[in-house]
Write a protein that binds this DNA or RNA. Structure first.
Lengths: 224, 224, 224, 224
DNA sequence: AATGAATGAGGGTTCATTCAT
DNA sequence: CATGAATGAACCCTCATTCAT
């Protein structure tokens, strides 16, 4: 009966190995980009032979797809959980959303950079698959963030405005910090990046600015 | 200015051919990414032979570097011109800056996407070269936008705050719309994109939201 | 003969398993050729794991060698038995030989095709082994068929001629039908071949033509 | 006007190079089989770089297809020319056909062996293409040889019989000698084969036996 | 004996770059 | 300058074989 829940040793090991490969791939892809990483390199970092990679993933592109998808889903679910919470105060929920997302962004810069380095001319089936899934997630996200804005507007907490535009503005503001950071980091040696500091930067400094600008705007008069 | 006259026909033609190659390369790179475009393809679209490309650019990477750099410089100069103008009203200048940048973003999505699809493991010399130049421009830009913010703060037009943070917030807000758009466009066939509509979208709708949110913020109370 | 009794259950099972592997291999090799069949495929069809195949055969090439050899020996022995029979009428014996061989050919097209799709660059030892054995059999076969022809010639039943040439002609005539058939079947999906019909075709129609042409020739005058 | 007939130097060189590649490939394939020859080997023997091979042929399989097809067409056309001649004496024409085919067989053993070493699991489009062409040729050949037999039968020169069976018997008899030879040659080192002697063997000895057996049959009585 | 995950050498193919014309 | 055929290093992927369980 409960064997269904309990994976066999074999199966458990397989999953661990799969994760090890994905972890190695993420590090390398994020550092050097999809086309500058060889399967051999991934294998070496994951401490397997090339052939083993192909036991887990049909091709380099499938590996990439799995990587993007699995990490994105985690990211997505965390945010959707916040948006799905039933909180009485929409502003508080928006704040929580900001804090959560900024925390994630600072922690997962690697996968975000990867996410924006699409592989065109990818096997069409893979691309379609990946896109379908991502589109579904983006739509859900947009809808729910927009709904939260609408709740805030209807509660008179946020200015009358198109809730979707507000959602885009808030999300764009946060994304903007990520790309500002990525731009800055182009020149840096990836091994020199202080990930702890980075996380803190996003979770504290950047998050604070996002909240202030988003809520209060920049004008002095509005602060009055 | 007047150097144009001193160019011989030969030299003028050379420059035109160079531009044709860069234009062809930009279209292809933006559509398919650096690694999915071959020198042969670029040559064909530019209506030259492969060998000819190498008369103008040492390597594919040098071509890419020139492309990024020249387009970025144009982009950069346009914005710097706005920031360098001596206007009496800082808010008006910020507004002009927003309108100008949003106009540029909508018009040059291709090169922006390319700019963020870096080529790592690029020949180190090239990378260093490119980075040095880009860093110089970014620094200049940040400094000048920050200075504008400071002028606005000192004039009591914008809330007391770190001018650099304000600069990052404004710029991030605009960048955020670009990446929101890019994310949306992943699934689309590049040939189906309506560039006129896109330009208008950025110059009008998105620009409006940027201005509203940046200046007034989202809170209902602040609008009072 | 009686060794069969002395085999332990273990040993008997081993032999059965070995046969199952060889059967699976023959089907696959005949269908797709040596280089298009993987050990994994053979293992799956034989319902064993890959590792098990290596308990029975040192390598893929050894497996192939065993397959060719064992099947060829069966084929060979059947024909030799006919040639070794002590029959009074050489013509009758030739007829029996034709019928037997045509029956075998129609029944074992698969192994024949395989036999002609040699693996060159095979491990030299294997090749030498296989060749030595095959050469021995071919020599025995040729000698005995030739002897039969000689008996027929000496009995005045067959035209004075080189017995070896007559042997080659008869055997060639039969082989010719096989390759005529193989040529025809290239375009066909192997799963669509009607093996029963094929067997009948060889045993009846083709065999009849072989007998007529071999014995009587084509000329009208000779039939008179 | 006549430029159409006159190939440019470039084009002429291209054709020569193409032929050199096909020649190198034939030698190697015939010696070692499709799967035991690497593109690198072919390139080396043809004195080109691997990349160059791909300028002429899309893939190894396309190269193989071109090889088979072009050589087969030559072979085919030579025979069809004989069958299409308008000769008064059908028997004379059959004799000429035998001599021509035996001459070709002895001269082109390599391509024949290759022709029977099909590549299954070949790209389906290639296979279909190749098969369609081969089937068309086989059909034409069979029809024309059969028609010749019919003419001979109607002229009372050959026994009343199914012309198609007679055609198959004659062709099979000749093919049989080829496979008899191939079987014999398995064990030999390909470099040791005396091609001149081989050609003579087919054109003289074997051809003589074919004619005798096919026309007169083996029976002593028929020779009377 | 049986299993099947792991190995890694080897082959097909691509494409940036060169160079003779 | 312009051309494009030729080059060959490098990469993705396959699959025969091994070995710990």
């Amino acid at each position: 009966m409960f064997e269904q829940r309990t994976l066999s040793r074999r199966e458990r090991e397989r999953l661990i190995h799969r994760q090890e490969i994905l972890d190695a791939a993420l590090e390398l892809f994020a550092q050097k980009g999809f086309y500058n990483v060889t399967m051999k390199e991934i294998a070496e970092r994951a401490e397997f032979a090339v052939g083993t990679l192909y036991k887990f993933f049909q091709s380099k592109q499938h590996l990439y797809k799995s990587l993007i998808l699995e990490r994105t889903i985690h990211f997505h679910n965390t945010l959707i959980n916040v948006l799905d919470e039933e909180m009485d105060d929409p502003l508080e929920q928006i704040e929580k959303f900001i804090m959560t997302k900024m925390g994630l962004l600072g922690k997962h810069i690697a996968i975000i950079r990867l996410y924006f380095t699409e592989i065109y001319r990818v096997n069409p089936t893979i691309k379609a698959d990946l896109e379908a899934e991502l589109t579904r997630m983006r739509r859900e996200f947009r809808t729910k963030l927009s709904a939260l804005m609408e709740r805030a507007i209807n509660a008179g907490l946020i200015r009358r405005s198109d809730p979707m535009h507000m959602a885009m503005a808030l999300d764009g503001l946060m994304k903007g910090f990520v790309f500002g950071y990525l731009e800055e980091s182009f020149g840096k040696d990836p091994s020199e990046i202080d990930y702890e500091k980075l996380e803190k930067l996003f979770a504290e400094d950047y998050a604070k600015t996002v909240r202030e600008v988003f809520f209060k705007g920049a004008l002095a008069s509005t602060a009055a």
